[in-house]
């Protein structure tokens, strides 16, 4: 059993959860995820690890409530115990010195890209962080991200903070500021990942996206997480979750994620990120 240390709604519909999992906290690296079950008979839910404390043996995740299982996780209280936290799963994000890197986070990805930013910064990269949200009240962790970034650019759809616009605007903004990345990293919902991969492909550098297909075991046993990358089938849980977004078959991935739409009593929710 794994103890819940902290739970908090940080912006509407996005929750922060910290659990005690010392074995995982000792090993975890940027870009990896865990699988959590909130109750017996609950689904196995993959969540990226957004921060950790090796001394205290804790892991922090940021998640969005989109359906039944995430609502049940959101319903946990401090001091509760959850039956499963397993990991660290997936391959760590490759974080050596590339030069100038752009790190883009939207919705839960603002949190989950934090360890990537920190690691890239520690390896001596010039990190330009870009946060994307519908409105300023959906932004969080800006100070935390700032301390490891050379620059932070905020894009909101309603212009309530930073630049007004969509991820489409991003290309122009980067042009205006004469930013030429050597590598791009994106975390967040599939819509953001796919759009960014399209809009920024002209830079001709790898666009590393952290994919989030449906998963069960997370260890390569079931194959439900398969995605087509550069024409061949990969298991996102063991071969990823990071892939070069320029060669991901987005159409297939978006369809595969909808497989259980009818079964899940979907709590209709409009985060504005195109789910």
């Amino acid at each position: 059993m794994f103890k819940v240390i902290e739970k908090e709604m940080i912006v509407p519909n996005l929750y922060l959860l910290t659990v005690q999992a010392p074995d995982i906290a000792e090993q975890i690296q940027a870009g990896q995820f865990i699988i959590l079950r909130s109750h017996d008979d609950a689904e196995r839910i993959p969540l990226s690890v957004a921060d950790w404390n090796r001394e205290e043996g804790t892991l922090t995740m940021i998640f969005m409530v989109v359906g039944d299982s995430t609502s049940r996780i959101a319903g946990l209280n401090v001091e509760d115990f959850v039956p499963t936290v397993v990991g660290p799963l997936g391959k760590p994000t490759e974080t050596k010195k590339f030069g100038t890197v752009i790190c883009i986070g939207g919705c839960y990805g603002i949190g989950s890209i934090f360890p990537v930013i920190r690691a890239l910064n520690e390896k001596g990269n010039k990190v330009i962080t870009i946060l994307e949200a519908r409105s300023n009240f959906l932004l969080y962790w800006e100070d935390k991200l700032k301390s490891y970034s050379e620059k932070i650019i905020i894009i909101t759809r309603d212009g309530s903070s930073g630049q007004k616009g969509h991820i489409k605007r991003l290309s122009k903004i980067l042009q205006e500021k004469a930013i030429k990345p050597d590598r791009i990293f994106v975390n967040g919902c599939t819509f953001l990942l796919s759009k960014t991969s399209l809009e920024l492909s002209h830079f001709k550098v790898p666009i590393i996206v952290s994919l989030n297909p449906i998963m069960i075991d997370g260890t390569g046993m079931c194959g439900v997480c398969r995605v087509t990358v550069d024409g061949s089938t990969k298991f996102a849980c063991v071969d990823g979750p990071d892939f070069d977004g320029r060669v991901v078959d987005w159409e297939e991935l978006l369809k595969r994620r909808k497989q259980y739409l009818n079964e899940e009593a979907v709590l209709v929710h409009h985060s504005g990120c195109g789910r």
């Binding site: 075991d217 079931c222 194959g223 297939e252 369809k255």
Partner: peptide, 16 residues
Amino acid sequence: GENLNGAYSANEYLTR
């Protein structure tokens, strides 16, 4: 076509 919805590995089907 093996990545179409409705296509499974036996492991996935039986594990579910």
